[in-house]
Nucleic acid binder design. Structure first.
Lengths: 192, 192
DNA sequence: CACAACTTACTGACTAGTTAGTAAATGGGC
DNA sequence: GCCCATTTACTAACTAGTCAGTAAGTTGTG
């Protein structure tokens, strides 16, 4: 389904998005970043919008796969989740690219829908892990939906702070960990 | 210092920013929204960048003034703070406009600096109110800097959720209130 | 007061450059 | 020889910013 070139273009879109931002993202820059011409991009994607839809699809897919670690122990699952969310690898395009597109959501309903799905998925991962942890007696009993919503809100906040303020991911991660510790009576520190 | 016209243009910039988003914000659209020509805008602001700097200045100024309510009782001050942050008036351009510019922060150091200042101010308001509330015996003793940081992170998160997901401000406000209640042993519900 | 010199605030018309997208020509593998 | 993938060359629309001109003040001077 997905050719070599389309993937190259999609990756180049991500790099360009991080380098120039959504406002200054042009087909020309994406073309340069992917070493093809703009006409070649238009051969694979009819419009810029279609390309960005494909990019967001890919971005969210990769993110969801990364976040949903399959550890059996709910404590490891929760710790793995935090790792996936906060571990910024050197070439990491997730935070900035995600932010750029989130800011477009009010003007682009397809983006908004996808972010809603992503949010539901994220909350689901947290809620399931917390539920399992409570059942197994590892965590204190809490309103799992509420905890998941709060964690998700905090992660959104951390994300903005990383991108907009340039705050250290570790700094911002601690906020979430402290909250979980206070709520669940368990610290994810050092796990997974 | 600030003429009638410059203020009109700055307000029009805000409206245009919310209507079209940063990426599609043009001098022409701002001109239409302010009923002057683009040349008139350039008379008052040499470049688009200069105009947007002035707009952000104004936006942050208004926000800081709105947020720092002067109630004597720290409980009222905290409740007033939440009202200021979460009460979206009908013509409210704060959330979207702020978000649009926050997403530009990675590419625009002057924006980033201003958002850092705003964040410090926000945290200061919360920390001072919490400190005063503890001293007066209204709140449980907590690490005030930590609470302020967490509240600020949650507000950032709520803000994203409002703008990107279209989530109800009340929904998202509850998360912060529940956290404060759990930490301080005091509920801001119904106050101020 | 009167009148010239100057400034402020603005318009309409323009420019040079950039944008997304198109059409026709070209190459490479089966 | 045919078709998929790609390039070169192009266009029409839009971009920020400039420029010359102008009407309405403002100021200085006798």
């Amino acid at each position: 389904m997905e050719s070599e070139t389309t993937e190259t273009i999609i990756r180049a879109t991500g790099r360009s998005l991080c380098e120039y931002g959504y406002a200054d993202l042009t087909m020309q820059r994406i073309a340069e970043a992917s070493s093809v011409t703009t006409a070649a991009i238009h051969y694979h994607f009819d419009t810029k919008e279609e390309l960005l839809d494909a990019f967001l699809d890919d971005l969210i897919d990769r993110f969801e796969r990364q976040v949903d670690c399959e550890a059996a122990d709910p404590r490891d699952r929760l710790a793995g989740f935090l790792d996936a969310v906060f571990d910024s690898e050197p070439d990491d395009e997730f935070p900035i690219a995600l932010m750029e597109l989130k800011a477009q959501a009010p003007f682009h309903n397809t983006y908004r829908e996808r972010f809603r799905e992503l949010d539901a998925a994220l909350r689901g991962v947290v809620q399931d892990a917390v539920e399992a942890g409570i059942e197994a007696g590892h965590f204190d009993a809490v309103d799992t939906a509420e905890v998941a919503r709060t964690v998700s809100t905090m992660i959104n906040g951390s994300h903005v702070r990383m991108v907009a303020l340039g705050e250290d991911p570790d700094e911002t991660r601690r906020v979430v960990e402290d909250y979980l510790e206070a709520q669940l009576g368990w610290s994810p520190e050092g796990a997974a």
